[in-house]
Amino acid sequence: NLMMDELARAYAARAAGRPPLWAAPAAPFHAFARRQAARGPDPRALDHWLDALRDAPQPCPIRRPDAPPLHRDPDAADGAANDAGGAWCEIALEPHVSDGLYALSKACAASLFNTVYAAISVALQRLAGLDALTVGTSASGRTDPDYFDTIGYFTTVTAHCLRAPGHLTPRAMIGTVRDMINGSLPHCEIPIDLVEERLSDGTAAPGAHMFEVFIQIHARNALNGALEGPEGPVRFRQVDPDKTDSVLGLQFEVVEDVIGGKRGLRMMMSYRHAHYSAEDVAELVAAVTRTCTAFAREGAADRPLDALLS
C-alpha cells in the first residue's frame, strides 16, 4: 500500500510536468536489517514463543476423520509427498456476508483479520475433528518508528495455537484471537525457524514448519484503484497469479477490496496436491463459506458454536 501511495503521488506530479517532491528520503531497509542483526534475538521474546507453542499439536492435513487415504503414485520417487506442486481457488463471500463480518468485528472490538482468522480456524477444526490447531500468520516486523515509511520486506512469520470447543461463542473466539495476536506483537522479531529448531531439539526437517495452515490478510488492498491525471483517472485492477505450487500445506489470503466505492472480501486458498484431494478442497471451501456465513448472521456473536453451526 505504501508503494502504491507513492506511485500515485509520483504519477500525478509527472503528468503535471514536474518531478515528485518527497518530504525526506526514506530510511534504507538494509539499515534496519543490519541494526536488527547486530542486536540479535531477544531471549525473552524467544521464551515467549517456546512457552506459547510447547504443547501445540503436530501439523497434519485438514481432512475429515473418515476421509479416504490420499492417492499416491506408486512410481513416484521417495519424498514426493513433500513436493510443492499445488493449486489455488477463490472463496468469494456474498456482500451480505462481508458486511456481517465487518459488523461482527466492530461489535467485538476487533479487527476484520481477527474475525476472519477465528472463523477459518473454527471451520477447519470442526471439519477435521481437531481439539486444537496451530496457525501460522504474518506480522509486519516494523518495530522501529524510524522505518515505518520504508519500503522493504519486513514481513516475518509467527504461529499461534487455537482451540475452538463447541461451548464457546464467536465473540469469545474472536477475543481470544485478538488478545493472542496483540499480545505476541512485541515478540514478533524472532524467526520462526529458530522457534521450531528449539522446540524440536534440532530434529525438525529443513523447510518443515510446525503449522499446516497459514492465514494472512491484505487489508485495504491498494492494488485496485486509479491514478489521477490531467485527462482523468487511469483505473487499474489486481490480476491474481495462477499458482501451480504451494510452499505451505494450506494457505488463506484474505483480500479486502474496494472497487468502485464498494467494499468486499474474498479469500485465495492455496493448497498442496500431496495433502489434499479435489474432494478435500471442495469440503474445505464449503466449511469455510458456511462458517463465515454463520458468523455474519445477526445475533451470532453470543451463540455457542455448537448451536450456531449445527
Rank of each mutant, 00 (worst) to 15 (best):
H96R: 09
P145G: 10
A132M: 04
V122N: 00
V135T: 11
L133A: 05
A76P: 09
S140I: 05
D149P: 03
P68L: 03
S111Q: 05
L130D: 07
L101P: 05
W88M: 14
L133I: 10
A81V: 13
Q125V: 04
A109D: 15
A132D: 00
Y147Q: 06
P74D: 14
A119F: 02
A76I: 13
V122Y: 02
K106D: 00
I120Y: 03
K106V: 03
A92L: 08
P145K: 11
D75G: 11
R72K: 11
G100E: 00
A128V: 04
V135P: 04
A119D: 08
G86C: 12
D99V: 13
A123G: 03
A67T: 08
E94W: 01
E94R: 14
G79W: 14
T134E: 06
D99C: 10
A80I: 01
P95E: 01
D146A: 15
D78R: 12
Y102C: 04
N114Y: 13
L133Q: 04
G141V: 11
F113C: 01
A109T: 07
G152T: 08
L127I: 04
I120H: 07
G129T: 05
A123M: 06
A87S: 15
F148H: 14
P74W: 15
A119T: 03
A67H: 10
Y102K: 04
R63D: 00
V135C: 02
G86E: 00
L112Q: 00
S138R: 13
Y153R: 08
L70Q: 07
A107E: 11
H96P: 01
H71F: 14
A77T: 12
G141C: 11
Y147F: 15
G141Q: 05
F113M: 02
A76W: 13
S98M: 10
A109K: 07
L127C: 02
P145R: 12
G86Q: 01
D131Y: 06
S98A: 15
L130V: 05
L104E: 08
V135Q: 09
S105M: 06
A103P: 01
L130M: 11
T137N: 01
S105F: 06
V122S: 08
T134W: 00
D99K: 07
Y153D: 09
P65M: 11
R64Y: 10
D66K: 12
D83K: 05
V97E: 02
D149M: 15
V135R: 10
P145C: 03
D144N: 09
Q125E: 09
T150V: 09
Q125I: 03
D99T: 14
A77I: 12
P68E: 09
G100L: 05
P145S: 05
G129I: 08
C89H: 06
L127E: 03
S138Q: 10
L93H: 06
A119G: 06
A67M: 05
A109L: 11
L70G: 09
E90R: 14
P145F: 04
F148N: 07
E90H: 15
T115G: 09
R72A: 14
